[in-house]
Computed example of a mutant assay.
Amino acid sequence: MEQAFHRFSELFAQLGLPSDESGIRHFIATHTPLPGDVELADAPFWTPAQATMLRDEIADDADWAEVVDQLNVALRAS
């Protein structure tokens, strides 16, 4: 089975967020740094649906897991 490769912009679109480069940069700048003791899906800025999607993708190691991991790292950078 071939694993899908998703871009950051596709993840942001899937989450219902602005998915252009400036929108992504703004989102990350606004929400960085995410404290180390807060799981990505538990961050207070997600809607319940967004949090569920992020949690499910990581738990299932689904198609989106790699790019969700990249988002996690980006939000923890200072």
Rank of each mutant, 00 (worst) to 15 (best):
S19P: 10
G23T: 04
N72Q: 08
W64G: 07
N72I: 00
L11D: 02
I24W: 02
G36I: 05
S9C: 07
P48L: 05
G36D: 06
A77Q: 03
W46L: 04
F12L: 06
A65E: 04
Q50F: 03
D69K: 11
F27P: 00
A74V: 00
M53A: 08
G23Q: 05
D37R: 13
N72G: 07
E57W: 06
L40R: 03
D20S: 06
L75I: 06
G23R: 01
F45T: 06
F8V: 10
T30R: 11
D20E: 10
T32A: 10
W46P: 02
Q3H: 12
Q3R: 13
W64R: 07
A77S: 09
S22P: 05
I28P: 00
D37G: 11
E39Y: 11
A41D: 10
A29K: 05
S22W: 03
M1Y: 13
R7N: 07
A13C: 15
F12H: 07
A29W: 02
F45V: 09
R7D: 01
A59H: 05
L15I: 04
E57Q: 14
R25Y: 03
M1C: 13
R25W: 02
L71Q: 00
R7F: 03
A49H: 11
F12V: 04
L54Q: 02
E10S: 12
F12C: 05
T32R: 14
H26Y: 05
D63E: 13
Q14S: 11
T47E: 12
F5T: 13
H26E: 05
F12A: 03
E21K: 11
T47Y: 11
G23I: 01
Q3V: 14
R7K: 15
L15Q: 02
T52K: 15
D20I: 08
A74E: 00
D60K: 14
E21W: 08
D60A: 15
W64L: 13
P44K: 13
M1L: 15
G36A: 08
A65W: 03
T47A: 15
V67F: 01
G23V: 00
I24R: 04
E39N: 14
V73F: 10
A62L: 15
W46D: 01
D56R: 13
L71D: 00
D60V: 14
T30V: 10
E2K: 06
L15C: 09
F5L: 12
D60T: 13
A29C: 01
S9P: 04
S78W: 06
I24G: 00
T30F: 02
R25L: 05
E57H: 11
S19G: 11
H26T: 12
D63V: 12
M53R: 05
V68R: 01
A13H: 15
I58A: 06
H6K: 05
D60Q: 14
E2N: 09
V38D: 02
V38S: 04
T52C: 15
T32F: 03
D61G: 14
W46S: 02
A59Q: 09
S22F: 06
Q3S: 12
P44G: 15
S78H: 10
T47H: 12
E2A: 08
L34W: 01
E57N: 11
D20T: 07
I24N: 01
F27Q: 00
D42C: 12
D56G: 08
